[in-house]
Design a protein around this nucleic acid. Structure first.
Lengths: 142, 142
DNA sequence: ATGTATGCAAAACATTTGCACCTGG
DNA sequence: CCAGGTGCAAATGTTTTGCATACAT
């Protein structure tokens, strides 16, 4: 029950918030843009505005319920924050997103920050490539 | 003389292109947004449109003369491509950008891609933190 | 009831594009 | 001369905001 998550975050339990949380939780794609979520709501017959989707996602981000990533292409993607840190590898062809966590890289980040006299606050690491998924367009294309 | 760089890229040597290249080359800040470059042109008394700045930067990117990075905040920054790969660490307070190249991280990226069945094409790694620069606002603030 | 949330439309940005005019080779 | 480049304004795509209305507590 995520109702409690909302209350804990100091957010009223409203229908749009529940629905958006639910979509992020149950969609087969863990990483969705605001537009994706909005369309998904329309499909479900919900009458929720795109502006609300953005507002709710920002609040969720502030509350630590979701995290936002700036992938290439000028739009953000959101995912439920499981509390487990990870980075992303994205297929340039089919858009598939996979998660990874590499301890060696994590350690190096601290080392690098220290070398440059920075107190590390956050980082963004995204790998782009072509995946081996048989359904991936770049393989289908030949 | 960068005239030859332009010719090599199959681009006519025009005034806007020269000026933009020159700004990227001589500005003390190596990393600039399109807007930054545009303002810099205005300061120099140049009459070059923002649209042209974007067009030229895109062409330069295609020609490998500059590289584009998507920092947080929804805007891109451009820098002269020296041919030497590096990533970035950005100060959240003063906006200062430093470059680094960590061989261990580079190797791990290939390993990670392989583990996930991806052929690595590109990557974006940006660290965010607070720098020790005495001029940095977050230190001045107390 | 009452302070928050929401929907809608409009605004705000960053970036791109259409088109008539200019310019470099 | 003439393909390609540029300026300007208008179009785009994404995200934010103002405001009157609706809702959770």
């Amino acid at each position: 029950m995520e109702r409690s998550d909302l209350r804990k975050a100091g957010l009223k339990v409203t229908l749009p918030r529940m629905r958006i949380l639910s979509i992020l939780d149950t969609s087969e794609r863990r990483h969705m843009s605001a537009e994706d979520i909005y369309k998904s709501l329309l499909d479900t017959g919900e009458d929720i505005g795109l502006a609300t989707v953005y507002r709710v996602l920002s609040q969720f981000e502030g509350a630590g319920l979701v995290s936002r990533h700036n992938f290439e292409g000028g739009h953000s993607v959101f995912e439920l924050d499981t509390g487990v840190h990870h980075d992303h590898i994205v297929c340039n062809d089919c858009g598939r997103v996979e998660e990874f966590m590499n301890p060696i890289v994590e350690v190096q980040q601290e080392t690098i920050a220290k070398e440059h006299g920075f107190a590390l606050v956050a980082h963004s690491m995204i790998l782009y490539g072509r995946c081996e998924n048989p359904d991936c367009p770049h393989r289908a294309k030949k």
